[in-house]
Structure formats: structure tokens, C-alpha cells
Design a protein around this nucleic acid. Structure first.
Lengths: 187, 187, 187, 187
DNA sequence: GATGAATGAGTATTCATTCAT
DNA sequence: GATGAATGAATACTCATTCAT
């Protein structure tokens, strides 16, 4: 693994363990096993590292979200696939998921990074499913971004409880959650 | 207002305005109009202040959540009352609500504070409503904490959109949300 | 002596010994016997310290330059008094003199500080003597600031040789220098 | 041009543009278009480069100073030739002249470099002219190094004003200056 | 000889904390 | 109890220097 990757991995780990606010350069150096000056061969400052880690995580999640998505499947199937993928990503990559969630709304993120394109336009895929459902009279009429946020919010909330070990997330729970989020936005 | 209260109010305001990570002691001193040494008469360090603010906010919210809660009312009425109270608290006290949400799942909170008892055991009240609904075959069978988290997640989601002024929250929208969260967990 | 004075004295000493470029904060702390944070109670940054030291030195020199200056004395007497005072200041306060000379033309000085008023308007006193001499046909016609610079340049040059111990500066040498600078600008 | 020359030229240019204190190795590398390690094939450290540049400039100036110097010419002719050469060198090579002037009296120069022999013993040539003039009763009796410094000081003063474009230096001004410096040291 | 990635000691500055008043 | 001057450990970042290629 390259030094650059070492640095990014160490940074994400530290953000997860201690929170963005307590990630210091000296912690990154030690964790990544590089000299203190080495970082500056790859990043101009700390902000850059965090943004690079964020972009990578966003791309990773973007790819994950559309895995197995079949445009021809029923609305219900497509909806559940998208929600499942998000939930599964959160389960498999808690560090990435939490970091994306917290950093996306932090004052430290630059606008262009927050509004970056996701891999495979995953955001647009979700939005188009919502809009289709509303057009067909299946989903409640509401601003599509609000609806988007609502179904994300449920997943995020559930994951946060899971991360602090309030409950397990097995096949059964997962199906219950997908069902609940579907019903929450039905007419 | 006591110096201690001045300090706590200033701290919550600053957390809301600039985020936990950029709140420094000197900002607190200036905002609270106290000398730099004064804090140490009340708190042993910064962590203590934040925890104290968190506890107070949790107690405040705990009281609020059970306002007008009538144990004898119907399940539906009681459920809606609890969800309404939470939503209303978030509308009336955005600083408290957001801070509780973010701090509860941050790496900085100590487990015993996260799991503190709420005023009036509000958490237990909510949980008992959920369990009752499940016993009566009205709510889907699922781990009660999962269910709890799910209906909170919907409220939190909606509030975050409201805070960034994506939409208003009037009587109509509020009733729709309560309805949606009720339907999300019906069998 | 106040901490602030300690810091300024230490700074001037270090500039003299090692040059502006190698004066570091840690050297200042140690020399001044103060904690590293103490400086920031008095100066917002290093630039401020250097400017404060410069201003003080300029004020000191400004007072010195007009000592014993008698407006009613002959042009020759007044000219020699001004040149003597400058030379004597350089002999008595080499640290101040060298620092003023080098910093005045450095790219680090702010314009407002470079153009600050000297104590007793000593610069104007010198210029008016030059202009008077030119009007009376005693001094060569040339741009007054150029003439000013020329007679300063002689003193500065002589002092720099003296500082590196090329020669002594006793009563005899001093009179020779005053005489030479007078003759250099005669018609 | 050799890499070594590239490095020295870049260094002098940078000193002139930004001042000795802000010349860093990385600026030199980039300006000279050499790899960062290359310097160490020629110089053991930064101090070495600066001293090498200084020595070269001194040699260059030393040669220039005695150009067209005719030992058999009259004292007046020889004096004017030396002063003219110095002035002309300053006009033609401002970077070298200013660097020599500032570095000669800086705390960074080592004594042996400051007292190095000039090309063609130009310093001795000047001194011998001074001494001859004093023996013949033409120049005032004063310490020869003091006299040397004095006539240099006038040239340096004039050049500094010229560099900041206070005035032009054409044939006429040049003759006035040579005349003034001659008169300054006459008995 | 020439290179530039890697290094770590050193820099200015911040900030929680102490303590004499 | 209340204060704020003084502190120094810790921070982000720079830069001369090394060394494997």
C-alpha cells in the first residue's frame, strides 16, 4: 500500500475512534507509520486529507448503493434494493458511513465536495424512484428531497442505534426496517 | 442567572453556532462574561461542561416528552402525543435537540451519560407504549429498542430538513408526520 | 521591568547578535525568561514585536538627534550638531542604530511604521537645514531627500566600519567625519 | 552553464528579489531547475552557497574596480577612476553590489570571508592612492581605512537612492558625485 | 552525477489550566 | 467566589538534509 493510502486509512480510523475534532497530525503520523513531513508530499494541509478521505468514501458508497439494482424490477423491489444497499453499506463499513453522515453536514466541508457527483449517479437513481412512485400515486406527495432525506434518516438512525449495540441487525430486523421505511412514505 | 448557568448557556450557544469542535474556553469566557478562572469553580474541565450541558438538555427534553401524556388515553392517542411532543421540542429548542442528537452518538460521550435516566423515565414511557402495541397485535413484532429508534429517526430526519428550511412545519405537515410514523410500525 | 519590556529588550539583543532572520520565538522566550504563551498577552505575533521594538528605537533616536540643537546657531553649527548627534547615537546605541538602518529598508516593515513621525520631527529639522543651505547657495543644488540620504549614508557607512572594528572613533576622527560630510555637499 | 553556476545564479537572484532571510532551498531548486539533492554535490549547506555567491561577487567587483586604472596617471585621475569604477559596477550589477554591501556587515558572514583578498588586490590599490594623497598633503590626514570607508559610503548612498529611482545617474550627475567625494577628503 | 520521496527537528501559534491577588 | 496574567504542552506546518535509485 502506498504512503498516501496509509495516511488516508489512518485518518479514517482515527476519525472513527476519536472523532474529527481530536484527529491530530501527530496521531496520523504515528498510526500511518510515516514521517511528519511525508504528508505534505501528498496533501497540502489537513483539510485536504479529510476531503480526500471523504471523496473516497463517497465514491465507495455510491458504487455500493446501486449494486444489484435492476431498472426493470418493480418499484417495490427497486425501493427495497436501494434501502437494503444503504443499510448493508452502513453495516459493512461503519467508519465510512458515519464519517460521510457527520461530515456532510459539518461546517468544514467545502461546497464543491459536498455536491460532488456520486459514482453511478446513485443519488439520482434514488430520486427517480421516489418521483416515479409519487407520479403513480403510490408514495405520498411531498418534496422529493424531503422524502429522500426521510428514508435516509430512518436508515441512519437505525444504524446509529446498531453501532452503539442497542440491538442486532440480522435478516429479520433488516426486512422489518425495509418494510417500515416503505410504509412510512406510502399514501 | 448564576455564573454557572451563564457558562452553560454560552457553551450550548457556541456549540450550536460553531460546532463542538471549535468551542474553546476563551470563547466561552467571553460569551459568558466571566473571568477565565471562574469556570474552575464549577467544572473540573471542558468535558465536564459539555456533559453538564448535555444532561440538562436531556432532562429538559425528558420533561417535555411526557407533557400532556395521559396513561388512560388510547394507544393511538398516547403514541401521537409522544411523537408530537418530540417534534414540538425539536421545533421549540433546536439547539438542545441537535446537540442531544449529535452528542449521543459521538465518541466523546461517556456510556454512563448516554444511558442516563431521563426525567420522568420518558424513555420507559415510550418503550412501554411500543411493547403494549406489540402485545395487542397493533404494532409489528420487532425489538422494542429498534422500533424506538425507528420512530425517533423519522422525527429527527424531518426536523433536520426543517432546520435548514427545506419546508415549513405547520399543523397539516405535523399531522402527516405523526400519521406516517404510526403507519411505519403498524403490522 | 515589565514582561513586555523584557521581551522587547531580548528581541533587540537577539536581532543584533544573530540577525532578524534567525530570531525565533523560543530564543526570545529563553532570553526574556518568560513562558512561550506570555508573548501573546502583549503582541499578536512576531511581526508586532519587531515593529514595537523598531518604533521604540526610532523614538529614542529621534529624541537624541535634536539634543542640543539651537535653531539660532549658524548653519554650519546646526549641520554639525545634527551629524554629530547621529554619529554619537550610532556609537552609543549600536543595536538600535543597526536595526533601524536594516529594518527601514527591509520588505518586512509596514509602510505606516516606516513613515511614522519621529520624535521632535527630527527628520524635518534635518531637511530644513539642507533646504536653507541650498537656498543660501552654500549647499549644492540637488533633490533634498537625496542630499539627506547622502549625509546619512556617510555616517552609516562610517559606523558600519567602526562596528566591525576597522578603526576607532575618537574626538579627532569624529571631527574629520563631520568636516568631510559638510564639504561633500558644499557647492 | 554548469549546475553549480545555475544554483549560484538562482541564489543571487532570489536574495535580490526576496531578501536573504526568505531564500529557501526549495526556492533555489525550483529556480535553478535542479533536483533537491543536486546541491549537495557542490555545497555542504546553505551557508556555503551564500558564501560562494559572495566570494564570486567580490571577485567580480574586484576585477571591475581596477579596470582602466593607470598607475602612472595623476592622483586625481586615479582617484576618479576608482570611484567611477565602483559607481559603474553598482549601476551595472545592482544585485551583486547590494548583496555585497548588506552581507559584508551582517552577522552571518565569517570574518575570514569578509577579509578575503579581492581580485588584483583592489582594496590595496585604493588604500595606496589614499595614503599617497595624504603623504603629498592633498588629502586630509585620517586613518586610511576610515577614509576608504568614507568615500565608499558616498558611492553606496548615491547608488541606493538610484536603485529606488529617486534620480537618474547620467554623465553629469556622475561627474558631480566624483567631484563631491574628492572634495570630501581634501585638506 | 542527478534525482526527489522521505524524513524529523524546528517554527509560530493556540489554548486549557494554574495561582497569586 | 471571582479574576486574568502567566504558563507550557500540544498543534499544524516548514524546510534543510539524507539516501536509495
Amino acid at each position: 500500500m502506498s504512503k498516501k493510502q496509509d495516511i488516508m486509512v489512518a485518518t479514517l480510523d482515527l476519525i472513527h475512534e476519536e472523532g474529527l475534532q481530536s484527529v491530530t497530525f501527530s496521531k496520523i503520523f504515528k498510526r500511518a507509520n510515516v514521517g511528519s513531513g511525508t504528508i505534505y508530499n501528498y496533501f497540502v494541509n489537513k483539510e485536504e486529507i479529510v476531503h480526500a478521505v471523504y471523496k473516497e468514501a463517497r465514491l465507495h458508497m455510491g458504487e455500493y448503493l446501486v449494486q444489484g439494482f435492476i431498472p426493470e424490477a418493480s418499484l417495490y423491489e427497486r425501493f427495497k434494493r436501494l434501502q437494503l444497499n444503504r443499510l448493508q453499506f452502513g453495516i459493512d463499513f461503519p467508519k465510512e458511513y458515519l464519517f460521510i453522515d457527520s461530515f456532510s453536514f459539518s461546517p468544514y466541508i467545502s461546497p464543491e465536495v459536498r455536491n460532488m457527483d456520486d459514482a453511478h449517479n446513485s443519488r439520482d437513481v434514488v430520486l427517480s424512484v421516489i418521483i416515479e412512485g409519487q407520479k403513480n400515486g403510490i408514495f405520498k406527495e411531498m418534496e422529493s428531497h424531503l422524502c429522500h432525506q426521510l428514508i435516509h434518516g430512518i436508515i441512519t438512525s437505525i444504524l446509529k442505534g446498531y453501532y452503539v449495540q442497542k440491538y442486532p441487525l440480522n435478516e429479520i430486523q433488516i426486512q422489518q426496517i425495509l418494510e417500515a421505511s416503505w410504509k412510512a412514505i406510502l399514501v
